[in-house]
Design a protein around this nucleic acid. Structure first.
Lengths: 344, 344
DNA sequence: CGAAAGGAAAGAATCGTTTAGGTTCTTTCC
DNA sequence: GGAAAGAACCTAAACGATTCTTTCCTTTCG
């Protein structure tokens, strides 16, 4: 039915092994024979069977992508399409394919990862998130599967190849920007506390406050999923403090969008009444109202480098552990303004 | 190194074929033997090799996902995470895996699809978009690969299994809703004209106008990518007509977000000055300002049904061609209001 | 001129499963 | 008691490549 390497061999009057070598463009085959074999391949419409090749090779040329549980709201974050675009680019260049994890809950995903790894469906894996005490990461380490994580591993970061931004510096700079604008009462609105990225950004925020000798107030720290009622409540609480903040560092553009709405509902104007700086600089931040000042973390590059390094690691098992830091830049738009003392 | 079926066989004192049958839970093996074999598997930590199984089986249990070119802005649309969530669910339930197309340009993606299909990397394919004169779809048909498209095929739709909404009716209803609110000057803001979904929604819009005996005006139709300068220009033109529209049917939530901004810049209020109804009802429509009245097209279900039916088709080649219509509902929020005659 | 060297291709084992077709042994029934 | 039937496994040939080893020719050179 399907045309195999043997058919080609017969047609070209050579042995199957010769055909195989022609495919691999081995120097051990003369140009004349190569031409002959290639013609036979054309004539028969031959296409190599990847599965068979994988079996013989013990390499699938597939890398697995582990997304956070899709039950999670995080899944809707435009971060993912963009990081996948970067991964996709690197992977395509090197003729690898991409396999997605499936499963809604964490347990399902874990099962899925075990399956793809043990079943030898993939040569390596990219973890698209980093959270504290992740079972999946522990598993990958234990099994010695080539993998890289996007974000900073919670523990033993020096033993795991990862691609990340310098999130603490980024947050620090973002906060300092607000301080330069004269703000002194700056609050931090974070997302899921288990994500390392949230922790790092909070840390950067604290550092900026400290080095500017501003007081760090617990009641200025809010962690919520901002697309829900609960989040709006928390937000309202924050703003009805005796000394409400005049500026906000928001951990993520999507969240900032939610904040923007809550503020509008409360009749507060951005940036007139409140300045906001957020992170990621996704498309959304351009088309929000007002357009958001946001830290561009170069999502595409995060994905691209992760994939590129994973493939290196796969193809050369002696590749050293690496930590790759992708640069960030603060993109100034219209959600921040100088602090203006209120009319008294 | 890795433990194979033979090792298990040896350990359990049976033939490899018996082990294989135990894995498949064949009734031809006695319970006693099954127990024995399963113990051996546990003891050795055996995991079946999917690649080898695929080769013997001529089935990979993988389905390919073809996304639009990631160079495209459409890629950023929250539609994709959600549809993938649906697909992922169906696929996970049936123990299939998901492989993503890679490549930025259309040509690259085409190449990629040919590779995954010819290389027998996938058992079937889901096309995540439908546009006029698509090479990839033509190829899949020619090669007789099991596939389903999400959206309505441009031509010969009755020969291709597809999962779609009744977009013309949806658009018609959305438009009628505006008409019921008293609007008579209703414009249509569409996206990429090559996408069938855009064409269908435009058609529904026209039908609504016609049956309400409202005039259909060419200058009320705009097709643009609304996140760019060009789009804003077109928008401004539209609103500076002698008789500007009082309501907008926007083909997509993301686009509606862009429109919302342009309007705000122009000092127009929604819904006071202009009503807007859009499509897809993604998360964004809830957290926009004002929250958008949007047609919920049940994206998750689109993906879920597509995957479910593709798998049916793969497992039973005689499965008939199907057209599956996913229901939609208009979700009313705060972007529409009654038409109010302007102060004269 | 004949042996050694070396290039080019063939042969055959292998990768880890599945599965058609046998084999063995017990059971059944006339 | 012996043939037939059937249960429970086993043997071995695929599946479609890759790759180690061997063989067959030419060349080359003393």
């Amino acid at each position: 039915m399907t045309v195999t390497i043997k058919d080609v061999a017969k047609r070209a009057n050579v042995a199957p092994s010769t055909v195989s070598r022609v495919i691999a463009d081995s120097p051990r085959i003369s140009e004349k024979t190569k031409k002959k074999v290639r013609e036979a391949m054309k004539e028969l419409g031959y296409h190599p069977n990847f599965i068979a090749r994988s079996l013989a090779n013990k390499s699938t040329q597939v890398i697995g992508l582990i997304m956070p549980s899709s039950a999670d709201k995080a899944f809707q974050n435009p971060f993912f399409p963009e990081v996948i675009r970067g991964i996709s680019k690197a992977v395509h260049d090197r003729q690898y394919a991409l396999q997605l994890s499936t499963g809604e809950t964490e347990a399902e995903i874990y099962e899925g990862v075990v399956h793809m790894v043990q079943g030898k469906r993939v040569d390596g894996v990219i973890l698209l998130y980093s959270r504290a005490n992740d079972k999946i990461m522990a598993y990958l380490q234990k099994e010695d599967v080539p993998f890289v994580v996007i974000g900073k591993p919670h523990k033993k970061a020096e033993q795991i190849t990862h691609v990340d931004n310098d999130n603490v510096r980024a947050a620090r700079e973002a906060t300092e920007y607000l301080i330069e604008l004269g703000h002194e009462r700056i609050a931090f609105v974070g997302g899921n506390v288990n994500l390392i990225v949230t922790m790092d950004r909070l840390l950067g925020y604290e550092k900026a406050l400290k080095s500017a000798s501003l007081s760090y107030r617990k009641d200025y720290i809010v962690h919520e999923e901002f697309l829900k009622e609960g989040g709006q409540e928390a937000m309202k609480e924050l703003l009805s403090l005796k000394e409400p903040p005049t500026a906000l560092v928001v951990a993520d553009d999507l969240m900032a969008l939610g904040v923007l709405n809550t503020l509008a509902e409360m009749g507060l104007r951005v940036p007139a009444d409140l300045s906001i700086v957020s992170f990621n600089n996704v498309l959304l931040s351009e088309i929000s109202r007002p357009p958001l000042t946001s830290v561009d973390i170069n999502i595409f590059q995060l994905g691209f480098e992760a994939a590129r390094n994973l493939i290196q690691q796969i193809e050369n098992p002696n590749e050293p552990i690496k930590r790759i830091i992708i640069p960030h830049t603060l993109v100034k738009r219209f959600s921040c303004d100088y602090y203006k003392a209120p009319f008294e």
